[in-house]
Design a protein around this nucleic acid. Structure first.
Length: 807
RNA sequence: GGGCGGUUAGCUCAGCUGGUAGAGCGCCUGCUUUACACGCAGGUGGCCGCAGGUUCGAGUCCUGCACCGCCCACCA
């Protein structure tokens, strides 16, 4: 073996070998009927890997490899997402450099361009997946726009349409004037802005006074169709049912009462603009108000704004205010800071506009998806995210699913010249209503998340009844960051329940969001992110995986190269101890032939670590696993076992050699899910191996040694005391004395004879324990085992103290 | 406005159903030449955010408060 471990060559070689030998394929190594399925969240085809993706892959791959070694039929599914608006916008930015836009290309020209673009930028992500060592079944890679998947999405649309839950309607929509498409509520991002709140008098139609309203958007006054007050508001009770005159347009509109009005805000009277505000829209529909629109798709005043047409809202607002001020209707104005919705992608201010869009009603879909989490069929880890999911699901509103872009699944609706709709999976020959053959397909495409929602089964061949679908649905664990609980997780749950009658996965693991070393959110656009290759290249995949898993928890985690450095040291340590054992193995073959204390002890320790790791992995806790492995390797295996057995290895003890090889095998197996490459590389150096480590059995516990987990406690205590004080403590057996001599080498110890400090320490421990045991209420009320433990501690301290003082 | 999370060693963080504080890194000291200085051994270092409460006993449970962060939100 090379004295120095160089991950770069080794890792790449194994990644290729495993894949070529088919060991990443679903079912590899399986010997039990259960399946373990992980759908890796499909990355945007337009993007590149972030360090957060590497964390996610590390978590998933560790669970997958662990399951594979335990004999499960595992499927780790890879794929890409076409990422509608995201890709659309990315291409827009590229085109802008040539002074063009997407729409300049025309629909077909755009299709051609996007294919070329994907060929150029699409391939890097999967090679980065491989670099991490993610054992995805690459041969099954799916794309959310491939033919089969496309068909699934269209089937889903038609299904919902026939259910009556998808409909086309003029509703208030979120319109991004820059991207020129509608957005769902989840694609908005609030942004704080400084506005002015104007208090404007609306004269009563009969001239008997006026009602004052507050607004930050005076331009929308042109589209006011009512004033609303709270029904219980004493101030306005008498005015309900009467009329006011809207300033500037001088239109008579009613005063209505609606409980959605906040009495505390402004004057308690609200101008109602159903065409340009979500709340006003609701009030308008409830009261049958007119829905006027005065703002166009470009965000400027439209033709309906009359003489103000073409002006910006700012300009139009100033004109309206000026008009009102001249007539003494401006009561006052004050600066006002508030959050307004913006497009999460381009940060333009989103216009709420009434427009014709496709909607999906959510009530019927949400009910079973709520039940699935309430009754524990779908579990969240950490649990608190179940509430986040439920709160959203219980208050979910209609989902706007149409987008006015050209990249995505085109809505399967055809219009005839008379405006009849035909909804079919395949292009119909004639209008279903009038028989007209002159059909035109809907221009809009579907929201990206409408298709992602099908991921857990569309990737398996749905709507066909494939063997994969039968075997691998539902999946096991979905690992994701918390930012897509609504966008994706929730939608997968309800689509799976609706189409297959079964939840898509049993566990949702919400892992840490990685922050940069300063504790700030990483952002590609701000350049505060970490390029995964900056870790993978110098440290290697094993170290990177280990380092990321170490810091992940139920909280956000700061990324740091320190933990990756620790992983690197672990890999090197493993490499070196393997060299020690292999160089001194002679012609021994791995066999559990324990004869002496240190061997039974290390086998017991490995078993205990395995049990601990199993427990944590079953609970989807990854960070504690790295700690268990680290201490097992460094402290138990290297610093104690290897040191203790070393003289016997040198001396040609066959049993010691055979057992050392067997113990090393088990250690490698335990580490493999986290650090697959270095462990597999060492594995191939072992004299006997029946298979690749990646598909070798997870170590079974050996009851013969479970009692020996603490066999070295006395020796370790004696060593501790000796190293601190140079005082020799009596040991009970020859084995113990031999191990002590092998591990505790006086010439490598400070041994400054500081027995006094040790005696003082033990005396204070004895005093503390005596104090507790003298407390009658403690002895009476504490559980028996706690009191016993305290007594044992006291006895041990007294024993050690006696040994020290006697010497 | 509503909700959630955090506050523990110089730094980054563990501490499950309450039993008298841990890890890694850093720092100090001493050890190298038959696995590894990418190493070994030892050590220093904590009113567990603040104030109350429950309890024989609180980092852990309860109530308030203070900062920091996140999510949701139609107060126009």
């Amino acid at each position: 073996m090379d004295p120095r471990y160089d991950p770069s060559a080794v890792e790449q070689r194994w990644q290729t070998t495993w894949e070529e030998e088919g060991l990443y394929a679903a079912g590899a190594g399986a010997h039990r009927p259960d399946t373990f399925v992980v759908m890796h969240p499909p990355p945007n085809i337009s993007g590149s890997l972030t360090i957060g993706h590497v964390l996610q892959l590390s978590i998933e791959d560790t669970l997958v490899r662990w399951s594979r070694m335990r004999g499960y039929d595992t499927l780790f599914q890879p794929g890409y997402d076409h990422a509608g608006i995201s890709t659309w916008a990315a291409i827009g930015r590229t085109l802008a450099k040539e002074g063009k836009s997407q729409r300049d290309l025309g629909r077909e020209g755009f299709d051609a361009y996007v294919q070329e673009w994907l060929a150029r930028y699409g391939g890097t992500i999967m090679s980065q997946f491989r670099w991490v060592g993610a054992s995805l079944d690459y041969g099954r890679t799916r794309f959310t726009m491939d033919d089969g998947y496309y068909r699934a999405v269209i089937r889903w649309f038609v299904h919902l349409y026939r259910r009556g839950w998808i409909y086309r309607d003029n509703r208030i929509s979120n319109w991004c004037p820059r991207d020129r498409t509608a957005l769902s509520d989840l694609e908005l991002e609030p942004e704080e802005v400084d506005d002015t709140l104007f208090f404007i008098g609306y004269p009563l139609a009969d001239g008997s006074g006026h009602v004052t309203i507050a607004t930050v958007r005076p331009a929308t006054i042109l589209a006011d169709t009512a004033v609303a007050v709270h029904p219980d508001d004493e101030r306005y009770r008498d005015l309900v049912g009467r009329e006011v005159v809207v300033p500037y347009v001088e239109r008579r509109v009613p005063i209505v009462a609606d409980e959605q009005v906040d009495r505390e805000f402004g004057t308690g009277a609200l101008k109602v603009t159903p065409g340009h505000d979500p709340l006003d829209f609701e009030i308008g529909r409830a009261h049958g108000l007119d829905e006027l629109v005065v703002i166009g798709l470009d965000g400027r005043m439209s033709a309906e704004a009359g003489e103000l047409a073409g002006l910006t809202q700012q300009e139009a607002g100033e004109r309206v205010i000026e008009w009102a001020r001249e007539r003494g209707l401006i009561e006052r104005q004050e600066p006002y800071r508030h959050a307004v919705p913006t497009c999460e992608r381009c940060h333009s201010r989103v216009e709420p506009l009434i427009m014709l869009q496709w909607w999906c009603a959510m009530d019927e879909l949400a009910a079973p998806a709520i039940a699935a989490v309430e009754d524990g069929g779908v579990r969240f880890t950490p649990e608190r995210f179940a509430r986040v999911y439920l709160d959203w699901m219980r208050n979910v509103r209609p989902w706007c699913i149409s987008r006015q872009i050209w990249w995505g699944h085109r809505i399967p609706v055809w219009y005839c010249p008379d405006g009849h709709l035909t909804v079919e999976e395949d292009a119909p020959a004639a209008c279903a209503e009038c028989g007209s053959a002159e059909l035109r397909q809907e221009e809009d495409v579907l929201d990206t998340w409408f298709s992602s929602a099908l991921y857990p089964f569309a990737t398996l061949g749905w709507p066909d009844e494939t063997p994969e679908l039968a075997s691998y649905y539902p999946g096991s664990v979905l690992a994701t960051a918390r930012d897509i609980i609504f966008l994706w997780v929730a939608r997968m749950v309800f689509s799976g329940l609706e189409l297959l009658g079964e939840k898509p996965f049993g566990d949702v693991l919400i892992h840490s969001t990685l922050l940069n070393p300063e504790g700030r959110r990483m952002s590609r656009t701000l350049g505060t992110g970490i390029d995964p290759e900056d870790a993978l290249e110098p440290y290697g995949a094993d170290a990177t995986r280990y380092g990321l898993l170490k810091v992940t928890s139920t909280q956000d985690a700061r990324f740091s190269f320190d933990s990756i450095e620790e992983g690197r040291r672990l890999a090197i340590k493993l490499w070196n101890v393997a060299r020690l054992i292999l160089a001194n193995a002679g012609d021994a073959r791995p066999e559990v032939a324990p004869r002496d204390l240190e061997e039974r002890w290390i086998l017991a320790r490995i078993d205990a670590a395995r049990a601990e790791a199993d427990e944590h992995l079953a609970r989807l806790e990854l960070a504690p696993v790295t700690a268990v492995l680290y201490h097992l390797t460094f402290d138990d295996f290297c610093d104690w076992y290897a040191e203790a057995v070393k003289p016997r290895l040198y001396g040609g003890d066959g049993d010691a050699r055979a057992t050392a090889l067997a113990a090393l095998e088990r250690l490698l197996a335990l580490l493999h899910p986290v650090m697959p490459h270095v462990t597999e590389e060492i594995w191939t150096q072992l004299p006997v191996r029946e298979a690749r480590l990646i598909v070798s059995p997870w170590p079974e516990p050996d009851e013969r040694f479970s009692a020996d987990e603490h066999a070295l406690d006395r020796v370790q205590e004696a060593a501790q005391i000796f190293r601190r004080s140079a005082v020799q403590v009596e040991l009970g057996s020859d084995d113990e004395r031999r191990i002590f001599a092998a591990v505790v080498r006086p010439e490598r110890t400070r041994a400054d004879g500081n027995a006094d400090a040790e005696i003082a320490r033990l005396r204070s421990e004895v005093a503390r324990a005596e104090g507790m045991l003298a407390n009658e209420r403690f002895v009476a009320n504490a559980p028996a085992e706690v009191v016993e433990a305290e007594q044992e501690k006291l006895e041990r301290y007294r024993r050690e103290l006696a040994a020290l003082e006697g010497s």
